[in-house]
Amino acid sequence: MPRKKHVSVDIPEVPPALSAEEAAARAYEHDKPLTKHSFESHEHPIVRIEHLNKSFDETLVLKDVNLDVWPGEVVVVLGPSGSGKSTMLRCINLLETPTAGHILIEDEEITGSGKTDVNKLRQNLGMVFQSFNLFPHLTAKENVMIGQTKVLGKTKEEAEREALVQLDAVGLGDRADFTPAQLSGGQQQRVAIARAVAMHPDVLLFDEPTSALDPELVRGVLDVMRDLAENGGMTMIVVTHEMGFARDVADRAVFMEDGVVVEQGLPENVFDHPENERTAEFLGSIQAK
């Protein structure tokens, strides 16, 4: 048996989190030209990521990532495999524990202190996984109900009503009593979206929601997401390779590579006139596919 190596990573020194007002002012200055989001006066970012660092063993996968997301904004995160985009997303709802830096949700710091009620936090941050992660022993309806009854304390009747509404919204009203095994991948992912939305979170995190799907099933899932963004006014952070979706729906495109945010801006700017060489290269490889 190999002896467990003593791992020592230099944890980067990061400055303390900014005050809410200062952060909002700076973020406004920074993000104004980069997003289609229509700012309201005195608006604060709903998610603030400041100097985020994350290491696995001795590999630093996130290096001083800074990003602010505004209420109702749709941010698409792009980048090659291993660039740290999924890790960043998972840090936001603490599925991964950041090594250093600050994450603030509605100006409440969730990192560091340890005071955060993680379960409470996660109720407000819906997540859709690449591999759906539906509960296979429950029907579609029960998958959507379980968070409402167990976590939000709703009655079965309320939860069921909500579940049927949400399943209808993703076009699966007639599949409520199917188990995940009886559904296609695309249908499963739509149930997973309904499950997340039924909790009425403030932010929805999508971790490559269409990567595991056959090409012909991608469309249905993207349509659901588009509907959420355009008609639901939902704040969404989407890690994806879907250029079309990013271009049409996103307010802002963020390009990450090697644990760093390399470039961000309006989707058409990033896609059509990438300033960064690596961004161009990556986009070229994606479009060539």
Partner: peptide, 26 residues
Amino acid sequence: PVGQYEAAASLGMNRSQTMVSIILPQ
């Protein structure tokens, strides 16, 4: 699979809720 724990966690379920409602039935 770990994904089951993560999915339960992402809904805000605590450890015992996850065990009783998600992991043990499976």
